[in-house]
């Protein structure tokens, strides 16, 4: 199904504005993006069928477009679910490489872009001060900073404690080393089965030759 170009242009506009706002509020990010120029990342989503191109210009500004004739530096193709999976993953770079998304082109700048985005540190103080005045804006920004710090460390602590509970208390999952040893043993078994299978085929072939 073909989508209305005006709707896609609207989505691109909103995405571009949001990205640029975040970039402008994060100290140093624009300079880091400038170093990635020229870079165009093409996102070809198959279901729903939507193409988007994210381009970084010489000033480090990011533009998002729905149509482009020149080839992108790197293109990512997959379904909407695949892209959501990557965005929600703990390690998006690893999820991108190991997932169902097909990547073509130069992946090095894409990984650098992923690092820049991961380091994005948005400081809300400037827009809050503009909207609420210097005293209230500063206080609210402090609250947001404290909340962000607390929620980040709480999330990490919870993750660690949950992992410890699963491993130590509940014994619901074997330790990582044990898992690795098991996976290696499975890999080894697969290799041995493959070897045995090919040996069997060779013997069968030889037997067929003798009887013929």
């Amino acid at each position: 199904m073909e989508h209305d170009p005006a709707v896609i242009a609207g989505v691109c506009l909103v995405a571009e504005k949001a990205i640029m706002r975040a970039v402008d509020l994060s100290v140093g990010t624009r300079n880091q993006l400038q170093r990635l120029h020229p870079l165009t990342v093409g996102v070809n989503c198959s279901s729903p069928s939507v193409d988007m191109y994210l381009t970084i210009d010489a000033e480090g500004a990011v533009s998002v477009a729905s149509y482009r004739e020149e080839a992108a530096t790197v293109s990512l193709a997959g379904s909407w679910k695949d892209f959501v999976g990557v965005a929600a993953a703990d390690d998006p770079a690893s999820a991108l490489i190991n997932g169902n998304i097909q990547i073509s082109g130069d992946t090095a700048p894409l990984l650098r872009l992923q690092t820049v985005l991961a380091d994005l540190d948005i400081d809300w103080e400037a827009p809050l001060t503009e909207a609420l005045g210097s005293v209230a804006g500063h206080q609210l920004a402090n609250v947001i900073r404290a909340f962000t710090r607390t929620s980040k460390s709480t999330h990490q602590r919870l993750k660690r404690q949950l992992s410890e509970f699963i491993l130590e208390e509940g014994r619901l999952s074997p330790p990582q080393a044990e898992q690795n040893a098991f996976f290696s043993a499975v890999d080894d078994l697969v290799l041995r089965v493959d070897r045995a299978d090919s040996r069997l085929k060779r013997i069968k072939k030889r037997l067929a030759g003798l009887s013929g």
Binding site: P5, A9, G10, L13, Y67, R68
Partner: peptide, 15 residues
């Protein structure tokens, strides 16, 4: 405000 989106797509098509 839609005229801005129509023009935006036109600019994209211009390459």
């Amino acid at each position: 405000g839609l005229h801005r989106l129509w023009k935006r797509f036109t600019i994209e098509l211009s390459s």
